[in-house]
């Protein structure tokens, strides 16, 4: 595998797609990144260190130390300048640099006076963000400082690749359970965005395995995953939640719209042909639960969708059931 590729600075669409591929924006803090930032700050003796990712119109910090900040508009981000080149951006005195002298982070009371940033270049050649240090006094950065930050930046990118591998289900290419749970936790915090959870289970999966063999079972999983992925919107997230179970996080959608989408997914799966189990067809049951103010935790949200899924199975499979309080609550493990 090659981890170096020519830098692509003029393909913003591809750059954003690569950033999205990392599935890291708006995720919760993670120790591994906080630890890298703590080391960078200590080794370079800087008051502030940050991992900045440049989204379409904002910079978002995966980790930052030395200042309380989660994101800023892209228009005022020093790191937005860093990502435009393969080289480090060195600003020894911000008040003497025409690009930054009027920047609000420079002109405010405790203004930034120095900056050193190194782009985070993905293996396919896109600068998705930067690793940077900043300070409140002018500073001359040495070549050794730059080399150290550059080495940390390379390490950070391979850490992001490792993180990505850990969040993918090898068989279906969807998120792993851990990856999906992370997305659910993030959605749970964003109460201003309506979200709906679908729990999807392949009907009579054991019979597919018993009658057609485990390879046919694996083919069924890939088949269902592909159909679901092809019919989701860009903002949605799909993950393999268990053996034959998928979960989908639908964002920015009302419950009635989600119900229509869920039923469309169910129908698409039911008409799909799979040579490995011909003439049988794969069908799925779907439980749906919206995120409303009465959902106290992510676990409860999952439990609600699971309860609706269980009801769909009880009703005869190959259908969508929307959670309501009148459904019999599901405790412990669901019977397939």
């Amino acid at each position: 595998m090659s981890f170096t590729s020519k830098l692509k600075t003029h393909d913003e669409h591809g750059r954003l797609a690569t950033l999205k591929r990392y599935q890291i924006l708006d995720t919760a803090p993670e120790d591994e990144f906080d630890e890298i930032i703590a080391l960078v700050k200590e080794v370079l003796g800087a008051p502030i260190a940050a991992i900045s990712l440049i989204d379409s119109d904002r910079q978002w910090f995966k980790a930052i130390s030395g200042v309380e900040l989660k994101e800023t508009p892209r228009s005022v981000a020093f790191c937005d300048h860093t990502i435009r080149s393969a080289h480090p951006l060195v600003v020894e005195d911000t008040t003497r640099d025409a690009r930054f002298e009027a920047n609000p982070f420079v002109t405010d009371a405790q203004g930034l006076r120095c900056y050193l940033g190194v782009p985070l270049q993905s293996p396919d050649g896109y600068n998705v963000g930067s690793l940077c240090v900043m300070g409140f006094e002018p500073r001359s950065f040495t070549n050794k400082d730059i080399d150290v930050l550059r080495s940390f930046a390379k390490l950070l990118v391979s850490q992001m690749e490792l993180r990505l591998v850990s969040r993918k289900d090898a068989l279906t290419g969807t998120l792993s359970r851990a990856g999906l749970e992370e997305r659910l936790a993030a959605a749970f915090q964003q109460t201003d965005r309506p979200s709906v959870l679908l729990m999807i289970d392949i009907d009579l999966f054991k019979r597919i395995n018993d009658h057609f063999g485990h390879q046919a079972g694996d083919a069924s999983l890939k088949h269902v995953a592909r159909i679901l992925q092809e019919n989701l919107r860009k903002v949605d997230e799909i993950g393999r939640y268990g053996g034959e179970e998928f979960a989908i996080l639908l964002r920015d959608i009302s419950e009635p719209e989600a119900c229509k989408l869920a039923d469309r997914l169910r129908q698409k799966v039911s008409v799909g042909k799979l040579a490995e189990i011909s003439p049988e067809r794969v069908t799925v049951s779907i439980g749906l639960a919206g995120l409303d103010p009465f959902v106290a935790s992510v676990d409860e949200w999952i439990r609600r969708a699971d309860t609706a899924l269980y009801q769909a199975k009880l009703n005869g499979r190959n259908q969508v059931v929307v959670y309501s309080a009148s459904l019999v609550p599901l405790h412990g493990n669901r019977q397939s």
Binding site: D31, E32, E35, I36, Q159, L162, R163, V165, S166, D169, A170, S176, R177, A178
Partner: peptide
Amino acid sequence: TSYEHKLIEVIATE
């Protein structure tokens, strides 16, 4: 140590 957990996650997933 910081990526040890990621490695365990991958192996557990696989």
